[in-house]
């Protein structure tokens, strides 16, 4: 069966390594924070100016001066730090943040990502996404494999205006885990009960299937 959003978040959480500073985008990526494996220390950065972001506040303690990049009220953990937006993006462009997880509308087989604009329909702006994808070494995309119309979001080439060029490393969807390689989308894992054929049918871009595709453990 295909994973739900929580399942995608759980699988991405397995990519975290001890000592990582991580930036999580809005949507499914935000959920990743709930599933960090035991014994691993991670610090979350939010680009509006906090390192050491904690969970949502207990009802009644929310603070308008303490929000994340999704404008949600949050808390600061012991050891947290606040800073201005230029320093925040210094951390990001300067590659001090080890991993970035973000959502996408489309990913191309060369690692291009589109997630900020649908011409004529949605023009909300890129926020920090272009800065994040331009610099980070380790970009993981969390998204559904197909859109609401059932069309593949893993493409030969993006059809929407792109956010960054050849920047995505890994894609985790409701169906599969795929690495971006010079040859295309290399299938690493399938969701429980999903076949390689299911993934192939849902992938418009070039899919490479090696001998050691395994089932996700979540």
């Amino acid at each position: 069966m295909a994973l739900d959003k929580t399942g995608i978040a759980r699988r991405i959480a397995q990519e975290m390594k001890d000592g990582f500073y991580v930036n999580l985008g809005i949507g499914i990526p935000t959920l990743v924070a709930n599933y960090i494996p035991e014994g691993i220390s991670i610090e979350f950065q939010s680009e509006n100016g906090i390192l050491g972001m904690g969970p949502f506040p207990i009802e009644g303690t929310e603070d308008p001066d303490l929000i994340n990049a999704g404008k949600q009220t949050i808390t600061a953990l012991p050891g947290a730090a606040f800073f201005d937006s230029a320093m925040s993006f210094g951390m990001i462009r300067g590659q001090h943040v080890h991993m970035t997880v973000l959502g996408a509308m489309e990913v191309a087989q060369n690692g291009d990502i589109a997630n900020w604009k649908i011409p004529g329909k949605m023009v909300k702006g890129m926020g920090g996404a272009m800065d994040l994808v331009a610099s980070a070494d380790n970009i993981i995309v969390a998204m559904m494999h197909t859109n609401r119309a059932g069309e593949s979001k893993l493409l030969t080439k993006c059809t929407l205006p792109i956010t960054g060029v050849s920047c995505v490393r890994k894609v985790v969807t409701d169906l599969a885990v795929l690495d971006i390689t010079p040859q295309g989308f290399e299938l690493r894992e399938v969701a429980p009960g999903i076949s390689v054929e299911d993934v192939r049918n849902a992938t418009e871009g070039k899919l490479i299937v090696g001998d050691n595709v395994r089932e996700m453990e979540i």
Binding site: F56, G60, P64, G70, T73
Partner: peptide
């Protein structure tokens, strides 16, 4: 006023 745009909380224990 310091309005909160997106109030997210955990329930009291």
């Amino acid at each position: 006023e310091k309005r909160i745009e997106n109030r997210t909380v955990r329930p009291k224990a």
